[in-house]
Nucleic acid binder design. Structure first.
Lengths: 194, 194
DNA sequence: GACAAAACGGAGGGTACCTCCGTATAGTTC
DNA sequence: GAACTATACGGAGGTACCCTCCGTTTTGTC
């Protein structure tokens, strides 16, 4: 839970000041907590208060609500991507399934975040496309391996597979068992060529 | 398109005044148009302006944003339910598929509305549950018939099927062809018992 | 310790949601 | 058709939130 390297250092032209970095982290952490507790509609001023910074500081780091949500989102996606490596040694079908399980678990805890994000998608699809690419990159080897082993129909792309899973899991049904079953049915469908 | 009987007359204790009824319709129509044109985030004051009524009148008919969205939503769902009757005479699998096609088309045009609604779902699931029931009631005979004909695996419920379709179609992908393909893969999965 | 660049924080402008209540209108009764 | 009452109208204004702007403070450097 120690979050030291959570800053996307790739594009920082010059090093930030130490206090600025601290505040950036504090806002991100407060936002994570606040969205989890109080729902996706939590006021940004409340988040600034929790973080112990002024509203101006929040907005300097994240020009608008969407930017803050995206920053959270990107961090989470990165985690899922990294988890793909864990399944490199398993049987093709099991590996794919295992990683999908991770994806499902991730979406389950962050459903509110995902929902809010969908509202902003049309406005700024750029950053979202980037993260989608990395998610695809992480999952594609698993899918390809499963297809080459004959465990999955070959006309499915990794993008389709992920969207299928995301679409199902994001369903606002009260019953998680039902969602599980739907997912299982859909994944069964992957195994047979039409 | 003539909308005369769109008022849910079931629960009206005493007849509304004629002008009140007129305004109710005007607001609903304006809201439909405004949400279609300007997106789900259109201000309610803009809708009142379009309808040619005061904001107070809008709020008397629909106590809050959610109520207005729900009223629109219910009307649309009813339409999809009615369309199920059209497929009573087709082959079992084709009938089911045909109706699903309707469902897809409906969601496609109303994606924004569906998205906005999802935000409010947790707050007031009551009315939503009612409309879900009627959607299930409309689709269940088609599914049952397909199952009895051996065309669809028997462990799938109508609720699961609908949620599967909704989940997939609501995916915010830019490419409709891809969504179609995902849907086809998922529906293929329905035919085989695991 | 002095100085410039960087960052801070919160007052305040703008907008949207929703409420409240004085005014206007529909429907009824004679 | 005039008088009357219940019903409905409309928009001013309170509240909350988003975001900007700028005077003040802090950091890092020489």
């Amino acid at each position: 839970m120690s979050s030291t390297d959570a800053v996307p250092t790739e594009l920082l032209k010059r090093p930030k000041r130490a206090d600025a970095l601290r505040n950036y982290e504090k806002v991100l952490t407060a936002a994570r907590e606040a969205f989890a507790e109080g729902g996706e509609a939590t006021a940004l001023e409340e988040i600034a208060r929790r973080a112990g910074v002024g509203i101006g500081t929040l907005y300097r780091n994240f020009p608008n609500r969407q930017a803050l949500l995206e920053a959270l989102y990107l961090g989470e996606v990165e985690q899922v991507c990294r988890s793909a490596a864990e399944f490199a040694d398993a049987e093709p079908w099991d590996a794919l399934n295992g990683w999908i399980g991770r994806l499902v678990a991730y979406i389950g805890t962050k459903r509110a975040l995902a929902g809010e994000l969908q509202n902003y998608l049309d406005q700024d699809a750029e950053l979202f496309a980037t993260s989608r690419e990395s998610l695809w990159g992480a999952g594609r080897p698993l899918l390809t391996r499963a297809q080459e082993a004959g465990a999955v129909r070959r006309d499915v792309t990794i993008g389709e597979l992920i969207q299928l899973v995301v679409g199902i899991v994001k369903i606002p049904s009260a019953d998680p068992e039902q969602v599980d079953h739907i997912l299982r049915v859909a994944l069964d469908g992957l195994r047979y060529q039409a």
